[in-house]
């Protein structure tokens, strides 16, 4: 009798435990059928200056100090971007026929000191960049060399198909934009690229006064 009773208790316990487990399994199954919602925002064509961790950062192009010279022999050279600070381009299905990255300055821009009392030009071809030959009264010319840049894919499976550097070009009064990178229609519609090391040089006119000069350039990306 004692054994029968013990067996009945064990059997009842098993029924309870199995029922409980069954309920838990059903609950789990019910949970797996929960609908997951994920919103994917539409992509865009964007460009920014970022470090290697892809954190946005500000940038400038700095030149080494030069001495005042009585002759127009000096060319300040530098480059846009470095191996640790690059231009990043994202095309998230927003430019399906290629895109262009160009650099330009406002047509009335000039290199200037803080007080704007001393200036020189960036787009004057007069005297090979040494003398004034355009509408303003200042000499000086800037030269951009995209062929010196390193352009690479920024992610897998992006490819370099159809992506090429522009030609080395000097700013003139008739050419205020220089093409840095061009992507053909056959380039990846979804992809990420990074670039740095665009050559920048500036011809300094003779007798330019000693000062710290600054200038603004705008890099534009546009879908073709």
């Amino acid at each position: 009798m004692q054994i029968d009773k013990a067996l009945r208790i064990i059997a009842l316990s098993l029924v309870v435990v199995i029922s409980g487990l069954s309920g838990l399994i059903h609950l789990a199954q019910a949970n797996t059928s929960t609908t997951l919602n994920q919103t994917i925002n539409p992509g865009s064509l964007t460009m920014d200056f970022k470090d290697n961790s892809e954190v946005s950062t500000t940038t400038s192009v700095t030149f080494g100090a030069l001495a005042v010279s009585a002759t127009c022999q000096q060319t300040a050279t530098s480059s846009l971007g470095s191996a640790t600070q690059r231009i990043w381009i994202d095309n998230l299905n927003a430019a399906n026929n290629g895109w262009t990255v160009s650099i330009g300055a406002a047509t009335s821009s000039l290199w200037h000191n803080v007080a704007s009392t001393s200036k020189y030009d960036f787009n004057d071809a007069g005297g090979a960049g040494c003398t004034d030959g355009d509408a303003d009264t200042f000499g000086g010319q800037m030269f951009i060399d995209p062929t010196a840049a390193t352009i690479a894919t920024g992610s897998v499976p992006t490819t370099m198909t159809g992506v090429s550097a522009g030609a080395a070009t000097a700013f003139t009064s008739a050419a205020s934009n220089v093409t840095l990178i061009q992507a053909a229609a056959g380039s990846d519609d979804i992809g990420k690229w990074k670039a740095y090391g665009f050559g920048v040089s500036q011809k300094i006119p003779a007798n330019q006064s000693s000062n710290a000069y600054s200038f603004d350039l705008t890099v534009t990306i546009v879908a073709n």
Partner: peptide
């Protein structure tokens, strides 16, 4: 103080 400040922008044709 000196040098070129770079600004970025996106254009839609």
């Amino acid at each position: 103080g000196s040098g070129i400040a770079i600004n970025f922008r996106t254009g839609l044709r």
